[in-house]
Write a protein that binds this DNA or RNA. Structure first.
Length: 169
DNA sequence: CCCTGATTCGC
DNA sequence: GCGAATCAGG
């Protein structure tokens, strides 16, 4: 993985949207370790981790007085993706020949809420292009069966669980 | 078993 | 700097 400025931008954008490291890895065609490793090196804001190393525990023992060391950090990490205004020009979805590729057990994506436009414009929110640039947009092809992505992108976003090492973008 | 993210450490 | 291995928790 060559971390070009663009790649880093994409990482930052996806990270900021609250996607899981594995999800980001899937989208960028790299491992979650690469994502998390890079994110860490970039000093990206660490999102609530399911665990925490013995740093709090260590300091807690050295400071037995009061302060029960509350480690709970609610932080509902969903983080709704940057909306999707349906940019007209929908060109060819190109999702034609893509085989359904059973989403297996790939359940819910980032539990993002859709407080609005839930019935009408169900468009794919796969990021395309460079975040922060004028040409950046979301796929916006027709989303597939209640999923946040079109058939094509759902196939790469939801994978068996293992492997899946192909470039996308 | 699946998942999650953080840290470590050989490269 | 990179990321797989490992750790740690759900």
């Amino acid at each position: 993985m060559d971390w070009s400025a663009e790649a880093i931008e994409t990482l930052r954008a996806l990270w900021a949207e609250g996607h899981s490291t594995a999800e980001i890895g899937r989208r960028m065609g790299i491992s979650k370790n690469a994502v998390v490793g890079k994110a860490h090196r970039l000093h990206l804001p660490a999102r609530p981790s399911p665990i925490q190393r013995e740093q709090a525990a260590a300091s807690a023992s050295s400071r037995p007085s009061a302060a029960p060391a509350v480690v709970s950090t609610p932080a509902p990490r969903p983080a709704a993706p940057a909306v999707v205004p349906a940019p007209a020009a929908t060109a060819a979805p190109a999702a034609t020949a893509v085989p359904p590729r059973a989403p297996s057990r790939a359940a819910a994506p980032p539990a993002q809420v859709r407080p609005f436009q839930r019935s009408s414009a169900r468009s794919c929110c796969w990021p395309i292009g460079e975040p922060g640039t004028p040409d950046f947009r979301f796929c916006s092809a027709e989303a597939f069966a209640g999923k946040p992505y079109c058939l094509e992108h759902a196939s790469v976003a939801y994978v068996k669980a293992r492997d899946r090492r192909e470039d996308a973008a």
